[in-house]
Design a binder for these strands. Structure first.
Lengths: 290, 290
DNA sequence: AGCGATTTGTGATATTTTTTTCACATATTT
DNA sequence: AAATATGTGAAAAAAATATCACAAATCGCT
């Protein structure tokens, strides 16, 4: 059911035959660089199309709009819809459920979060962060807060396999100052801090920064205050139709980073992974996967 | 360095720190559905961002434009340029990165996982699971394994706020048989088990099942053997271009379930949540979010 | 080619909308 | 407590739009 709403572009092309010479000239000019030209003032559009002002006014009414602003509003709406589109062709994600079902609304929101988050990411920064983390000559500290400690743990757990020389710090714990005693210039802190930002985390970041460590921050769209101290800030959108915030997008980034670091260290990691496999087989802790 | 001219989006992000709270709120709103919202009248933009008209006027000048129309003109120009650039037509997630960049490949895979996972979900089963979990007369056990224990913990942490009468069990721990002593008919087990499936988890499930408990299972596309015992099985696709599997989709489902259960128990939870808020404010553990 | 009908542009004007800017009260932050 | 930021309501200025009448151009047709 491609009930795709007809775009203005479609509408123009459809009516192209019913238009007069000057109007057609105008129409083609609109399509020329669509939809940018239609979003400027009427007079500019007229000038661009080398057509008079009344012609434009007459045509938009012919197309069925109340006036030029009306026409523009729909163009903007179209742009809005298109921006969200890439995969939004799905009317629903869980097709068996109505679109108002939480499954669909929640997923919509998460996809949106992913889209917006990735759109704002700076790949160079991301790569730089991965390189920092992959370098085993720096000690790696992983820091999580109250909500984020599961993400931190997830990240830490994988890093344990990928590299050595790392520590997991829980900022809500009161033992963390001890860890800092070992921190030195050049060490790397991966810090998770989303709203509501935790003062402990900020303090820890400040001390780490003072000691010359580099900070990679996973935060939300409003950015933890830690980001002033961070070498690389990755801010994720976390809004969902829930009383809670979503960590799904952050999880995606974390996993991507794990994969990237893994790739960088593949030569060594390979052996570790294989060793792990053997160990699991021996202990019969896991079933063999076929 | 890319010779791409800096977009307004870039510019906003760059200056994000130099902006005040309301301005930042506005800036994020502009980025929200970029660039459509910036192309409408100033007043609408202000309304969308829930910000006053002068704030908008002040910000665009702060960004270096002579006035709002000036700002809009550049937005249109950008749109024009983008439409002409054949390379920009690529639908990448991180637009600043080539489509072969891991950020894009990984995200593609996850979106795919989400799509396929949601497509296979039975909403009635999902709702049934939520209802079971929301019912506080059943004791709730949350069970995680080696990899999944972070997800289990995440789920448990939220459930602690939403309801009482629950226990977190780690299947890899050897203390879990003790928990089972308390399990009785009608109790609910939420079990996480993805490949490689863990024998301990299976045993635990068997015992729980034998005692008449009901099982809700989060697993992967190949399904843990536990699924034979489960009342509701939610299987998630977890394949990504990495040596590891992805938990992002499972996380999405878990969060959706948290939101759904939250909704079901909202009357009671409301108070708990508010109490929590007050507590955080008192302890000054978190900063006030505006 | 030439005629009538239709379309289009011109220039002006009225109308509406939008932008800009104020001063000041209220919030918020430091 | 002081400094800074923000919203309110209003009003002035600017810009954009909608219209009009009429002349010029174009078109369709014989």
């Amino acid at each position: 059911m491609s009930s795709q709403k007809a775009t203005i572009s479609d509408r123009i092309q459809e009516k192209l035959d019913a238009l007069t010479r000057a109007e057609r000239q105008l129409a083609l000019s609109i399509l020329e660089n669509y939809p940018a030209s239609g979003l400027g003032p009427l007079a500019s559009l007229a000038k661009d199309a080398q057509v008079s002002v009344p012609t434009v006014a007459r045509m938009v009414q012919k197309l069925g709009y109340k006036g030029y602003p009306d026409f523009q509003a729909e163009l903007r709406e179209e742009l809005r819809a298109k921006a969200k589109d890439p995969i939004a062709k799905h009317d629903t994600w869980a097709e068996a459920a109505p679109s108002e079902h939480l499954l669909n609304r929640f997923t919509d929101a998460v996809i949106d979060n992913i889209r917006l988050t990735l759109g704002q990411i700076n790949p160079e920064e991301f790569d730089r962060a991965c390189a920092l983390i992959a370098d085993q000559s720096n000690h790696l500290f992983v820091v999580g807060g109250r909500i984020t400690h599961t993400l931190a743990e997830y990240f830490f757990m994988h890093m344990q396999v990928i590299r050595s020389n790392l520590t997991h710090v829980q900022s809500t714990s009161n033992t963390w100052p001890h860890y800092l005693l070992n921190a030195q210039e050049g060490d790397v802190f991966v810090i998770f801090d989303v709203r509501r930002y935790e003062n402990n985390t900020l303090k820890l970041a400040e001390m780490a920064h003072a000691r010359g460590a580099r900070i990679i921050l996973f935060t939300d769209q409003w950015r933890s205050p830690v980001h002033h101290l961070a070498d690389v800030s990755l801010s994720c959108r976390i809004i969902v139709p829930s009383a809670w915030d979503s960590s799904a997008t952050t999880m995606l980034l974390v996993e991507t980073m794990i994969a990237a670091v893994q790739d960088l260290n593949w030569d060594e990691t390979k052996e570790r992974m294989e060793a792990l496999e053997v160990m699991f087989d021996q202990t019969k802790l896991f079933r063999k996967f076929t």
